[in-house]
Nucleic acid binder design. Structure first.
Length: 814
RNA sequence: GCCGAAGUGGCGGAAUGGUAGACGCGGCAGUCUCAAAAACUGUUGGGGGGCAACCCCCGUGUCGGUUCGAAUCCGACCUUCGGCACCA
């Protein structure tokens, strides 16, 4: 044994050599099939913790596996660098967000290099640099010109004491400002939106996508498609210009059960519909609602509140006159902000009716019941009752009949509504890409011409919280000239949501050097869509949804030729520490660095894969990490020490070959399924077996050498440094990472002998080693003839004998 | 509340209708050593029996069901984690 395993030394050595030789540089070659393996890029919060490595190391292993399997693999890395934490760090430490971010990136890059991944650093993407955000702005303009961007008033979280806009995550507890504890209110601001709702139907379609079912379900719920009818109720209140008010309902068949009518407190007709004698009470209620934080308002299980406006609407079908109330459980943003209340068949409406002593009328009888005296709201289908000419119809037919009547009389129509709202991208923040828009008193809203991009973020802005967009106070930024009339004009001072930056970064990786376009179209055509995208499930609806929207919009603009960015999605589990997800903001991070320094990157990579199934994650502990480290040590000793063949047995060689090929088969299958933990078990088992063979010397030296080569190839994705070192020490040509993945021989991998389990009434009573080719008849005969079974069978009647090929004979006795 | 995932030795986990506990950690015993560490070897779910090779019983959150056979499938419940949440 020439030398002990010294991971620090060999890891550094090979990382330097790989970098110097550019072995992981990726070219668009046409000979090998392309494979785009993408890991969600990290946010530049400081340094990488174990949670990051958990996301990145196994995906690197997979990318390396595909590379050895003959694919031209793109496995890039970059940084999501704009966002609130940089600004917060800047405020609390007096350091510029740019400096803070770039320093973090430097550190993270160093940590990533120490992992020994195949990232091609020539393709690195950093979203906060002008050569990147120039194109983020360019996409904004594209969407604007395509009619997908518009400006509208929208509420923001507002702290009246700090005089500042707060992000949702800065609102803590029961709607309090995280800085000063003041209750947060809402403030209306004119902001930019993307018309993502235009794509609602397309975004519901996940056809052809190999994604986890639960992520698809989450996205479907996010879109929240509901079919129903829009119905106009008649207004007969004096002084109201509008003669109708529209509601959305999913249950037009319950229309005869409407006993009152509800509006959101924010509904535009509320003040007109309030009679003078109710005005004081209504105003008081609306003021109270406004004081309610979003948090309180949506909290479930709270008592229903509301007030009567003093006016009425008429049900167009039953012609019944019902009172109008306002309540905070009707949301202004969903449907029409108005609800026809059917207390007998809606739980919330029933609660409201009971609280305010409003009538309840059953109009759908549950199967087998009369429908009278319901203890709780009945929301299922049934026979219509108390419903005029429709009584007696099954509710499904009633639904159709009422819709037909509404259409005929023009009192309403079938519609589809979505829960999905347009994507608000304005942020009243400094550390983001400026929205490339100009406001001119003469010409109005004018987009920045493409040739004037990027709109640079001024380095000298006062980015501390001032009450509005920090850029507003930067005169050199705000004051500009109108691109149309050249007169004085003002720039938009809001910046873009960082989800905008991450909605197209996977395109930039293909060609980050491109100067005159966001990407090289030919290279995008070659690499996209992403073949495997891995990351945390917390991005199920926001990032993944926005990136899909972006891609579909780009397709419609003929900028790309595909409409789904990520063909296969895999979510690794979350690393928990002290009962919480590991994250910088929660202050419970464990750095990989000290483990790397002590045991080497290969051991840390291996351990993260070994702790359990990748999709499960789990509580972090380092109890088992020495196990992986010891195993790598054993591998080192096994391979570096000389092998001496003593007495060669053909039977032993046969078994040796069989186990070698069986291992190749298992490791290959596990990797393909991203089952890293069991892959490592197979490798460890094989190592244990090799140790035994080595001691006995029962196989020839050439066979031994061949098996060691195979083993090192199988080890290469997991422990790239160790495998490279041992590859070189066993006299092979550099580099192991350019070798093809080993193929197994199906015949050799096959089991020749199997353990046949013999059961009596399902209980294990005997085992016997038999040839794998045993027939059913032979197996049954063998089982029945076993001496050991006599005690269980004799004197009893055998009623059945069940044979499961290659596994079990079960003798059923009475 | 709804949706989804999970619950197996002292611990991480393996087995997805057919030998429960692979692999690893930890423990115990041993080898080496003046000693310790490291390394290596053996052993390790619980209970009972046998001088012994071994043998028997129990055991996968709880209760029930389906099946020749259930950790695995079905039903109810409990617990933990993730997501959504008054959506008319």
């Amino acid at each position: 044994m020439a030398q002990n395993y010294n991971p620090q030394e060999i890891e550094k050595k090979w990382q330097q050599k790989w970098a110097a030789d550019h072995i992981y540089e990726v070219k668009e070659s046409s000979k090998r099939p392309k494979f785009y393996a993408l890991t969600m890029f990290p946010y530049t919060s400081g340094d990488l913790h174990i949670g990051h490595w958990y996301a990145m190391a196994p995906s690197d292993v997979y990318a390396r596996f595909k590379r050895m399997q003959g694919c031209n693999v793109l496995h890039p890395m970059g940084f999501d660098a704009f966002g609130l934490p940089a600004e917060n760090a800047a405020i609390s430490r007096g350091i510029h967000p740019y400096e803070w971010t770039m320093k973090n990136i430097e550190n993270m890059r160093r940590q990533l290099r120490s992992m020994g991944a195949i990232y091609d650093w020539n393709r690195e993407v950093i979203t906060c640099l002008p050569d990147y955000y120039k194109w983020t702005q360019w996409f904004f303009l594209k969407l604007y010109h395509a009619g997908l961007a518009y400006r509208a008033e929208a509420p923001v979280n507002w702290c009246p004491k700090c005089q500042t806009v707060l992000a949702n995550e800065q609102v803590v507890g029961e709607g309090l400002c995280e800085r000063c504890g003041t209750p947060v209110t809402k403030k209306e601001l004119k902001q930019w939106f993307f018309r993502i709702t235009k794509y609602a139907e397309k975004l519901l379609d996940h056809n052809g996508l190999d994604w986890p079912e639960r992520i698809k379900v989450m996205q479907k719920n996010w879109v929240g498609k509901r079919e129903g009818a829009e119905i106009s109720f008649w207004l007969e209140h004096e002084g109201v210009e509008q003669k109708e008010i529209r509601v959305f309902t999913t249950r037009p068949d319950t229309i005869f059960g409407v006993t009152f009518f509800l509006l959101a407190p924010e509904h535009p007709l509320v003040s007109q519909l309030t009679t003078p004698e109710h005005k004081a009470e209504v105003d008081k209620y609306i003021a109270w609602c406004r004081r309610q934080t979003e948090y309180e308002r949506v909290a479930l299980g709270r008592e229903k509140t509301g007030v009567f406006l003093g006016s009425y609407v008429v049900n167009p079908i039953s012609k019944e006159r019902v009172p109008i109330w306002i309540t905070d459980y009707v949301l202004p943003t969903y449907g029409t902000g108005a609800v026809m209340a059917v207390p007998a068949h809606d739980e919330r409406d029933l609660e409201f009716a009971r609280k305010f002593k409003l009538p309840v009328r059953t109009v759908i009888a549950p199967p087998g019941g009369t429908g009278e005296e319901l203890a709780e709201a009945y929301i299922g289908p049934g026979a219509m009752v108390n419903s005029g000419e429709f009584s007696g119809l099954p509710s499904e037919q009633g639904y159709e009949a009422i819709c037909a009547l509404l259409k005929k009389k023009r009192w309403g129509k079938r519609i589809i509504v979505y829960r999905l709202r347009d994507w608000l991208i304005s942020r009243q923040r400094y550390w983001g890409a400026p929205i490339p828009m100009i406001y001119c008193d003469k010409c109005g809203v004018v987009p920045v011409p493409e040739e004037d991009l990027p709109v640079l973020l001024p380095p000298d802005a006062e980015f501390k919280p001032t009450g509005e967009s920090p850029l507003k106070y930067c005169q050199s930024f705000v004051n500009t000239t109108c691109p149309k009339c050249s007169g004085p004009a003002r720039r938009e001072t809001d910046t873009m949501d960082t989800f905008m930056c991450s909605s197209w970064y996977f395109l930039r990786y293909t060609s980050p050097e491109t100067k005159n376009a966001p990407f090289d179209a030919a290279k995008v055509k070659y690499w996209l869509p992403v073949d495997l995208y891995t990351g945390g499930a917390e991005h199920a609806v926001m990032h993944l949804f926005y990136a899909r929207f972006f891609t579909k919009a780009l397709k419609d603009m003929d900028l790309v030729d595909f409409d789904e960015p990520f063909t296969r999605l895999f979510n690794q589990g979350t690393i928990i520490y002290h009962g919480d997800k590991m994250s910088k903001s929660r202050g419970n991070v464990i750095a990989p660095d000290e483990y790397v320094a002590k045991l080497g990157a290969d051991a840390v990579r291996g351990y993260l894969m070994f702790v359990g199934p990748w999709e499960l994650g789990g509580e972090w502990n380092d109890r088992g990490i020495v196990g992986v480290s010891r195993w790598l040590n054993r591998v080192w000793n096994l391979v570096t020490a000389d092998y001496t063949s003593r007495v060669v047995y053909p039977e032993a060689e046969k078994e040796f070959l069989h186990l070698t090929h069986k291992t190749i088969k298992e490791v290959t299958a596990d990797l393909a399924k991203l089952r890293f933990n069991t892959m490592l078990s197979s490798l460890m088992e094989f190592t244990n077996y090799l140790s035994k063979v080595k001691e006995s010397g029962v196989v020839s030296g050439s066979l031994w050498g061949e098996a060691i080569s195979y083993f090192l190839l199988l080890l290469a994705p997991t422990a790239p440094h160790l495998a490279e070192e041992l590859w070189s020490r066993t006299g092979h040509h550099y580099s192991i990472h350019n070798q093809p993945w080993p193929e197994y021989d199906e015949e050799l991998a096959k089991e020749e002998e199997i353990t046949l389990v013999i059961q009596v009434n399902g209980k294990l009573r005997d085992k016997v080693l038999v040839p794998a080719s045993i027939s059913e008849i032979e197996a049954k005969e063998l089982a029945l003839g076993r001496e050991r079974l006599k005690a269980y069978i004799d004197g009893k009647q055998v009623t059945r004998v069940i044979y499961i090929p290659k596994r079990v004979v079960n003798i059923v006795v009475k």
